[in-house]
Amino acid sequence: MVVVISPYADCASARDTAARFVAEHCPWADLDAVQLVVTELTANALRHTSGSWRLRLRAEHGELTVELDDSSPALPEARTPDFAGGGGFGWPMVLSLAGRVEVQPHAEGKTVRAIWSREPEAA
């Protein structure tokens, strides 16, 4: 497992860490999708929280898990994209790129978990 903790990292550092982790531990994963999800989750934590965030990457049992803890109790929600610069693109993108997404509220905020499963090899 790899952990990246703010304020010692930014979106670019988190994305680079994810790329190294995927290359070493789960090269089967779609690197572009993982990096986009990591970028979106960390950017949202920076934009929408007043506290710190923590990113964890884990590969085990044929799954890659990206977890981001942040200090905001507000759960992500889909909204109509605003092409004039108001956002609304990130959460639907996270939902479409990851195989499975879970959000777990807790006393300190929430954890957003994006999970990709390794496809079984064809016989």
Rank of each mutant, 00 (worst) to 15 (best):
W116C: 03
A74I: 13
D70I: 05
D10R: 08
V3C: 07
G62R: 07
T65Q: 12
T65P: 01
V112L: 06
D30C: 10
A14I: 12
W28P: 03
E121I: 12
G51W: 07
V22F: 04
R79T: 11
A122M: 12
E121Q: 12
S52K: 11
D82S: 06
A29Y: 05
H61M: 10
A19G: 10
G109A: 08
V103F: 01
S72M: 02
A59I: 06
E40F: 02
R56K: 10
S96Q: 14
A74T: 13
I115Q: 01
A9L: 00
E108Y: 10
R118S: 06
L36Q: 15
T39H: 10
T42M: 10
G86Q: 07
S6Q: 06
P76S: 00
A29P: 03
L36S: 12
H106D: 13
A84C: 13
P92G: 04
S50F: 11
A18N: 08
P27C: 02
V37A: 03
V22N: 08
V34K: 04
L97H: 06
A33R: 07
E77S: 12
S6G: 15
V38E: 03
G85A: 11
R113F: 02
V38L: 00
G88R: 00
D70V: 00
V4W: 04
D10W: 09
S117L: 12
R15P: 00
V37P: 02
M93P: 02
L31H: 02
P105R: 09
D82L: 07
G51M: 10
C26D: 07
P76V: 02
A84K: 14
H48P: 01
S13I: 13
V34I: 11
E77T: 11
W116G: 04
S96M: 09
P105V: 09
V103Q: 00
T80I: 11
D16Q: 13
P76L: 01
P27Y: 03
W116Y: 02
H106A: 11
L75V: 04
A122E: 15
A14C: 15
D10C: 11
V2Q: 14
R56V: 10
R20Q: 14
Y8G: 11
P7T: 04
R79P: 01
S52W: 15
C11E: 15
A59G: 02
D32L: 14
W53F: 14
P76I: 02
R79F: 08
